[in-house]
Write a protein that binds this DNA or RNA. Structure first.
Lengths: 226, 226, 226, 226
DNA sequence: TATGAATGAGAATTCATTCAT
DNA sequence: TATGAATGAATTCTCATTCAT
């Protein structure tokens, strides 16, 4: 019974009109978990419906499409993240302190919203060219600018090593931090702030032992403090 | 046409029987690229056939299934990688030198086989429980043991900072290194050895400037960012 | 397993590459009949598959979509019709003879291709704005121009009554002729050329008896010479 | 709220019980327009609800089903039309005058109720076998009898040409007249009575110019109609 | 080796309809 | 009267895979 080319229907409820928030949020949380664990394409609307206790078709009472669910989850997450980071970089503290907080905040976010983070990591690549998901690239870029800004500032005040390319450094940090969502277990024994501590220790001072610097060029690493 | 001893129907040519090797390899390369760029589930056998200039059904003369293609690509890649790393860790050199070479080798691998690396990164998660892909987890674990072994050795000889958990450190390094496949462009202006240099600089000595070090692990970390 | 936004696949076989013509034509004929009798939206691809003896999904081996089937049927029909009419209007005969042949040709077409005609009648309205079906409106317009051209020519040579608006006259004729597809039965006792004869009699001379003119409005339509 | 004798659940308010008449009529008008422009199957209850400013589910407080809406619209229209025509044919005037008025009345109806007419034209075919819509065929038949009766009467009194089959003539007239709903614009410059005038001119006297007989083949084609 | 036709199991989405509130 | 959540059946279309030629 499909028309030859049906005109687009009027929109359904969206996130911002505050209607049916309860059920929507519930379903979105379920979808986020499934998308994150199985991947978006591998998750069927039936999976979501089953988990939510309704028929898959009934999901369309709440959302326009499976894609729209993904968009809503990602948008919520990314706008939140941007705001969180913007607050940090706006602080009147030395770059080094701000970078630390960006890192800590990231690990905390992974702890609090592992699904959204995993989702972002997994799908943002495939979303690059899709118009409805332009915001992903945009916000990513804004975030990148904040982080790189802090790194550059840190180099300027002499806190950070200048031999490092800020862009490249940002990527190294970003990848190490966010990819941890793939092995970090929120309920595991390794707490997120401990992971952050460890990462910051490595990031700040490097892997080489402090007095290994002299040994670096090959000489006397004898005094090695351990 | 009847062979003296016909092969059991279940198994077609495999990589090692040296038949039709040329066409097979060609198709596998195409598949690897498509799998890597679009993702495995999003790549259809028709995509592969189109790119190879044959009909999708004809692919089944070469391979048992789409999954079998993925398995072959990944197995080739991972066994190679394991061998490569095994050579490095077997060298009679200080841990630090060996770790550097592991890192450099990884970036070089990304340069040489970006598709396989991307594939491994994207799909290995979803492959965790699939019997045919058990080798992925196994080899990953072997590789992890090699790297962690080097890190531990480095700590034992005093080259590497001991405050760092070796497992955690491995993950931080692994994630930063391999995730670079997502932004590294083999034909871009940023050469892979330069990327490796930059990463090793960060990894070795950390982000903090050398004269900031006194504030660092030095006692009075009052100004310390946290 | 749907990708977020799959790129459009390469085209399948089309009508003009002359491949698989046999099966294609068979299926198209079935589809035409179903579309014509049930209406396009009310015909499901399952209906077509059932009638063709294959699964509905298998139709997509031959055609890109249900819509594409409709387009092919209509295009074949309309281009043919245009050619047929173009031949007639190009003849070096008086307008009256050409108009008669247009009418007779139309009834003959209804006899020969009732499904395509019914389809055109039923669906062309809904197809107005759809890009893939622009040809429908275009060819319709070309045909209209041919007919109206003949009518105008007939008026100019004095064959046709000048009190009639040519456009309007065309529509009256067109609608009476083509709508007959809805009641004409190709295998019925009423042959198409008889129907054409009757229609032409009415069209030529009108409903009023030849000597009924005097009774007309009662007044002085004396010049009504027949 | 409990009525003394609650109506059986199967039947809700109908057109004739005078309840909620205003809203009902409003909704029916909306439905008629949508059904007429998009076609009945292509119109969703949601479309109707949207246009009426209520949710689609709420329509079921007024009507039993989407089909019931269509039935009500068509029945109203057709009973009215039958009555209108019945009045005309009952007049004590010559057949010719009555036929003219039937035609004029039809064009006027198209002008006044274009949606209902279009609806009738579009859907009556598909409704042929549906029990709830038997009235459509019945009334159509009654109307046909009236028209054919007038035509036959006209032939008997010598007003109408006798070489024409009355049934066939009726169909030609009916199709030309009613199909005009598809191009007639109630608010256009071409008024319905002008259209009727033009059609009647063509119908009465035919397309051939009054003195065209002699001009025809040049000779004495008195027996004209070819 | 390859084609071309087909299978069969899903996929997302639509939609008339119901019903508790 | 109307809402909002849900049903359940159907729809178009996709896709890995098979197999006779």
């Amino acid at each position: 019974m499909s028309a030859i080319r049906p005109e687009p229907r009027t929109r359904r409820r969206t996130a911002s009109d505050g209607t049916g928030t309860a059920r929507r949020a519930e379903i979105l949380a379920i979808a986020a978990e499934l998308f994150a664990t199985r991947g978006f394409p591998q998750t069927t609307v039936r999976d979501i419906g089953d988990e939510a206790g309704i028929l898959s078709g009934s999901l369309y009472h709440h959302f326009d499409s499976k894609e729209a669910m993904l968009a809503e989850i990602l948008r919520d997450f990314m706008e939140n993240l941007r705001a969180r980071f913007a607050e940090v970089v706006a602080q009147d503290r030395p770059p080094r302190a701000r970078l630390d907080e960006l890192v800590r905040g990231s690990f905390a976010t992974i702890h609090q919203q592992p699904h959204a983070v995993a989702l972002y990591q997994k799908e943002s690549g495939a979303l690059a060219g899709v118009p409805e998901f332009r915001f992903v690239g945009q916000i990513s870029l804004e975030i990148e600018k904040m982080w790189v800004g802090v790194i550059v500032a840190g180099q300027q005040v002499g806190d950070f090593r200048t031999g490092l390319d800020p862009e490249l450094t940002y990527r190294f940090i970003r990848d190490a931090v966010w990819t941890s969502v793939q092995w970090y277990r929120p309920r595991g024994r390794l707490r997120h702030d401990v992971v952050a501590d460890q990462y910051l220790l490595l990031l700040h001072s490097g892997l080489l032992a402090d007095d290994a610097g002299s040994a670096d060029a090959g000489s006397t690493s004898s005094a090695n403090g351990r």
